[in-house]
Amino acid sequence: MRVVDVNRILGPVPVGDVPSRDVAGLVAELDRLAIDAACVVHSHVLHYDPVTPVAVPGHPRLTSVPVVVPGPLGTPVPEARIVRLCPAEHQFALAGPQGLELARELAERNITVLLGWESTNAGDVHRLAAEVPALRIVLINTGYRALRELADLLDAHAEIRVDTASLCGHLQVEWMANRYGAHRVLFGTGAPETDDAGPRFQLGHLELPAADVELIAGGNVLELLG
């Protein structure tokens, strides 16, 4: 079974001195938890400046996830299969005119969007998905408090998915997979800003068929990466 973390941060973070501040430390953390690969966003573009990004050093186990910002003061759409949108952090309207223009371009180019739950709200996600139904959105860092809103969104929009970073309640991942299909659930940790050992332990103990666990563990994100 291939295990791929769709939601990982490389670089120093405000919460403390972390091993994943550089590539060597991050890969060592992946080894410690038996994670084969990761999609990584650099903390510089996540928390500071996406317009002048810090490049993620090349490594066969790491896929760089650029942060994109719409509009003339934003960023060009990169050559990537997965990008991240951070409307709260970088002060733009997710479902505004420029946000929708960006979303349409991402959908046309078959690029998947990671979208942090802490950076948006259910109403804006609904408007974005309704206006651009072909856009694949992975809602990350959701948590148990968002389950009712998540159910509302997943019922309405077939291209919305979730990661497991904060779906840590009893049988929450199983409920998502059984109701919406395992193809809409991706393994992610949000580390190092959130715990990585918990989601990794949970992955190894899911009460789901082996084929579903393999999809969640890595099959789904590998498909999105092509």
Rank of each mutant, 00 (worst) to 15 (best):
V4L: 15
R8F: 04
I9D: 03
I9E: 02
L10E: 04
G11P: 01
P12W: 02
P12H: 02
V18R: 14
S20Y: 09
R21G: 14
D22E: 13
V23F: 06
V23G: 05
A24L: 06
G25M: 06
G25R: 02
L26T: 04
R32W: 08
R32V: 12
L33S: 13
A34C: 13
I35F: 05
I35L: 11
D36C: 09
D36H: 12
V41E: 01
V41M: 03
S43M: 11
V45N: 08
L46S: 06
H47I: 11
Y48F: 11
D49R: 04
P50M: 02
V51T: 14
V51K: 10
T52A: 15
P53T: 05
V54F: 08
G58S: 15
H59K: 10
R61P: 07
L62W: 04
T63E: 06
P66I: 10
P66M: 09
G71F: 13
G74I: 01
T75P: 14
E79P: 11
R81F: 05
V83D: 04
R84F: 04
P87Y: 02
Q91W: 07
Q91T: 13
F92M: 09
A93G: 03
A95C: 06
Q98C: 04
G99R: 03
L100T: 09
E101D: 13
L102Q: 01
R104V: 09
L106N: 02
L106M: 05
A107R: 00
A107I: 04
E108F: 03
R109S: 10
R109M: 10
N110C: 12
I111G: 07
T112V: 15
L114V: 04
L115R: 07
E118G: 14
S119M: 15
G123K: 09
G123Y: 02
D124L: 03
R127K: 11
L128V: 02
A130S: 07
V132Y: 01
P133S: 02
P133G: 05
L135R: 03
V138I: 15
T142S: 12
Y144M: 10
R145A: 14
L154E: 08
D155Y: 08
A156W: 07
A158C: 08
A158F: 01
I160K: 09
V162A: 05
A165Q: 05
S166H: 13
C168N: 05
G169Y: 00
L171W: 13
V173C: 01
E174K: 08
M176W: 02
A177N: 08
N178Y: 12
R179S: 05
R179A: 14
R179W: 11
A182Q: 13
H183F: 11
H183A: 15
L186I: 11
F187I: 09
F187V: 07
F187L: 09
G190N: 01
G190K: 01
A191M: 06
R200K: 12
F201I: 00
F201N: 13
L203T: 09
L206Y: 10
L208M: 11
A210M: 14
D212P: 07
A217Q: 14
G218F: 11
V221G: 07
L225V: 03
